[in-house]
Design a binder for these strands. Structure first.
Length: 253
DNA sequence: GCGACAG
DNA sequence: ATCTTGTCGC
């Protein structure tokens, strides 16, 4: 991090961790760079929302990433890019970012214009150390990011109402994991469960998705964007487009 | 020791 | 994430 508080993605990539202990140390070091004090772009803003996703071929040790830019208002695809690389880290719950980010950064670099918002597959704040994939990608790029996951991980939630748009809090029952203002310090006392994200029903009668803040976006807007991006299916169109593209990219390698 | 475990 | 058949519906 330089004097202005910016993280250098190149420096981070040069010092990419090789084991779990190093990776956790990186998360603890970068966590303080996350900006949670900005509300982020308004839903329906004039700009692009970019979806990123990754596909793997562990047999050949190959990973393919895709970045697809949609018009934030019409959801039309306006730009896309892919990148291929070697798997840089094994899958470990809580350390997903180290497996996905290097190739995702390459894909993002292939876009013609700078994204106004990036939607990640996975979590941001909803993470054991409050620094999931979306937080990590946000800090390394400086871009507003959110995380939309398909599973609640270890967090607890009460199912939201049956209608599209219904939400319920995603809660961390284990206090003392992080020093969050209002969580009552580090003593493992019985404090109120911390809301780390939200379960959001994007389609009536369909299992919810799990939204959390990444970087420079608040939770209300993260949910509003997610709902706007999912007018027809459970998952945001950004995620669907990026998922489709990275699979095609992997298959053509 | 056993279960749970984003993608 | 990935492995996989058939099936229901627009």
């Amino acid at each position: 991090m330089d004097a202005s508080g910016t993280i250098s993605p190149d420096d981070e990539l040069r010092h990419w961790p090789t084991d779990e202990a190093q990776a956790r140390a990186v998360q603890d070091r970068l966590r303080s760079s996350v900006r949670l004090d900005q509300s982020g772009p308004e839903p329906g803003f004039a700009g692009t929302v970019v979806g990123v996703d990754v596909a793997y071929d562990d047999e050949r040790d190959v990973v393919a990433a895709a970045a697809v830019a949609l018009d934030a208002r019409t959801l039309a695809v306006v730009d896309e890019a892919t990148a291929v690389g070697r798997v840089s880290f094994p899958y470990v719950p809580g350390l997903l970012a180290f497996r996905e980010i290097p190739t995702v950064l390459d894909a993002l670099a292939g876009l013609t214009r700078t994204p106004d918002l990036v939607v990640c597959d996975g979590y941001g704040l909803a993470h054991p150390r409050r620094f999931g994939l979306a937080s990590h990608l946000g800090v390394l790029t400086g871009l507003p990011t959110i995380g939309v996951a398909k599973n609640p991980f270890t967090f607890r939630y009460t199912p939201p109402g049956p209608d599209r748009g219904a939400v319920s809090p995603l809660l961390d029952d284990r206090p003392g994991t992080t020093d969050t203002p209002g969580s009552g310090g580090t003593a493992g006392g019985a404090g109120h469960p911390e809301e780390v994200g939200r379960a959001l029903r994007t389609q009536t009668g369909v299992k919810p998705v799990f939204v959390s803040v990444g970087h420079r976006v608040d939770l209300d807007r993260a949910c509003a964007h997610t709902l706007h991006l999912a007018p027809k299916y459970r998952l945001p169109e950004t995620t669907r487009a990026a998922d489709s593209l990275c699979r095609r990219a992997l298959a053509s390698v």
